[in-house]
């Protein structure tokens, strides 16, 4: 039984990791006041370019770097369109998802059915061998730790660092931030790019670690889940960690329940995280102060500097 619980938690963590990457990036992006619905597209772009790089060079770590970079490039396109050319963020984000789906399929045609060397789990002598706790704390693949580190870093950045406060100021009142003299567009560009970088990493995690292969549309909606996750976490990084484990965990639990023969309908379990999101949305919408505290006030609004 303990073995089953440990194994399930380990599997849950890997399911949560791509969500953590993508959601952390999107959270920073939204905190700066930009809503990027292109997560799914950026993840797919990261997944395919990362896999292609790993397949060509034989180096999975390089693949991850390429995944992150290509995600960031996709985000740059989004940034130019929405921040410089002031196009509608919702429409542009949706277009980015459609574009990413198509581009990744096109690039990926030659890589379907290829194999690469997977990035495996780490094993720290002594520490990883401690019963129960050893594997839970020290037995994951390195990217699980990276995702958690970035998440904690983002949390620190937003609440403690000077630049984090500025980023939030830009997201909450672009006009005042501009009046004080902060470069609103540049800061938003940085946030959008970071979002793309993270989404690319999340996609790369899927094609390089999770299932070491490329398949068309392999993110299978995880970008949308990450988007829901940001709202679920009410724009607080620490809650993203909790939410990602919950969202990722439900899918694993759903399969676990089936394998154990519990007879709970699979569709019902898959529905749960979304119901939770709606409930959270309703709850935070009821409390006006909480919204003001967390949701970026300028989210989705274009900014044009008045001179």
């Amino acid at each position: 039984m303990t073995e089953l619980i440990i194994a399930s938690i380990m599997t849950m963590m890997t399911a949560a990791t791509p969500l953590m990457f993508a959601a952390t990036g999107e959270l920073i992006c939204e905190r700066s006041g930009v809503l990027n619905l292109g997560l799914e597209g950026m993840m797919l772009i990261g997944a395919v370019f990362g896999f292609a790089a790993a397949a060509v060079t034989g180096n999975a770590t390089l693949g991850l770097l390429v995944a992150a970079t290509s995600g960031a490039f996709a985000a740059l396109i989004f940034g130019i369109l929405t921040l410089n050319l002031l196009s509608n963020q919702v429409a542009t984000g949706l277009a980015l998802t459609i574009f990413g789906t198509g581009l990744s399929a096109l690039v990926g045609v030659d890589y379907v059915g290829e194999t690469i060397d997977q990035i495996g789990s780490i094993h720290i002598p002594i520490l990883s061998d401690i019963p129960i706790v050893g594997r839970l704390l020290f037995g994951h693949d390195p990217l699980v730790y990276l995702a958690i580190l970035i998440l904690l870093g983002a949390s620190w950045f937003l609440s403690r660092s000077r630049w984090g406060m500025i980023l939030r100021a830009v997201g909450d009142s672009d006009v005042s931030a501009h009046a004080i003299g902060y470069p609103v567009i540049a800061i938003r560009f940085a946030a959008v790019t970071f979002g793309g970088l993270m989404a690319g990493l999340g996609g790369g995690y899927l094609s390089l670690v999770y299932t070491p292969l490329w398949a068309e549309n392999m993110t299978a909606g995880r970008g949308w889940i990450a988007l829901a996750l940001v709202v679920f976490a009410s724009w607080r990084p620490a809650r993203v960690l909790f939410g990602a484990i919950l969202f990722g965990g439900i899918t694993i639990l759903q399969l676990n329940a089936q394998a154990a023969g519990l007879g709970i309908p699979a569709a019902f379990m898959s529905m749960l995280p979304y119901i939770a999101t709606i409930v959270v949305l309703v709850l935070i919408s009821r409390d006006a102060i909480k919204i003001r505290l967390n949701a970026p006030a300028c989210l989705g609004r274009p900014f044009r500097a008045e001179r």
Partner: peptide, 21 residues
């Protein structure tokens, strides 16, 4: 039951869960 013919992520999840059990 994964309710799909082709979804590598889900197929891998199912395999992991079965091995966990």
């Amino acid at each position: 039951w994964v309710y799909t013919w082709y979804d590598p992520g889900k197929e891998a999840d199912a395999a992991k869960v079965l091995m966990d059990q």
